[in-house]
């Protein structure tokens, strides 16, 4: 996995609450058997005026000029600023894959849905939780100034504005450790293979019905 230590980038404002994973990447694009190539269909139904289809050349589609990612100032953004309960709904990991493929490295919101939050960390994408008032302030500053950038430091757990104002955020130690070092967490778990095997053997004798393969 790609490591995440620090990032500085342009902020794009996604100003609505309860953005669900169907909105982040609609179902017709989930038919792909790859992990990449979802970027052009990120927020497909908001970004384009027509109904998107897999394997389409998105540069030929009618775009929705009102959607923020279609505005010149946000086209090269890499930090998504969002509202409450971002990423709710389906467990599809295609949602962080699409954000990543577009070029986002950080999401900032007051809260996230659990599965989406977890999926981000598996893909080198950092979801940051900041208080609603701070998020409000960042929305105001982003909209007021074209090219508005934030600096994120995962080691220090801070988000810093262009004026030097700094906000701390919390993140679980194990998630931070994996992200900072770009660790393959399957490899980390397999270091405990003997412990897993011992647990399994004990369960096989105490609860044999859990190991019934059916008939």
């Amino acid at each position: 996995m790609r490591a995440f230590t620090q990032h500085k980038g342009i902020v794009a404002p996604m100003d609505r609450s309860n953005v669900d994973t169907d909105m982040i990447i609609p179902k017709q694009f989930l038919k792909s058997i790859k992990r990449t190539g979802f970027g052009p269909n990120l927020f497909d139904e908001l970004r384009y005026l027509d109904e998107g289809k897999p394997d389409q050349d998105c540069s030929q589609r009618p775009i929705n000029p009102d959607f923020m990612l279609n505005q010149e100032r946000y086209k090269s953004s890499s930090i998504l600023l969002a509202r409450r309960n971002f990423g709710c709904g389906s467990s599809r990991e295609h949602a962080p894959w699409a954000l990543d493929d577009f070029g986002f490295r950080v999401v900032i919101a007051p809260s996230y849905a659990d599965i989406f939050y977890n999926n981000c960390f598996k893909n080198g994408l950092l979801p940051i939780v900041l208080e609603e008032e701070i998020v409000d302030q960042l929305f105001r500053e982003t909209e007021a100034e074209s090219g508005y950038e934030l600096s994120v430091d995962l080691e220090a757990k801070t988000v810093t504005t262009p004026s030097g104002q700094s906000f701390s955020f919390e993140v679980d130690d194990f998630r931070r450790h994996c992200l900072l070092n770009g660790l393959d967490d399957i490899g980390v778990t397999l270091e405990d293979a003997d412990t897993i095997r011992a647990y399994e053997d004990a369960r096989r004798s105490s609860a044999p019905w859990l190991f019934n393969a059916g008939n």
């Binding site: 599809r92 990991e93 599965i115 977890n118 999926n119 598996k122 399957i186 397999l190």
Partner: peptide, 11 residues
Amino acid sequence: GTSEVEHVLAT
């Protein structure tokens, strides 16, 4: 998510 599907398959 899919990364966890892989993790459970492997571990």
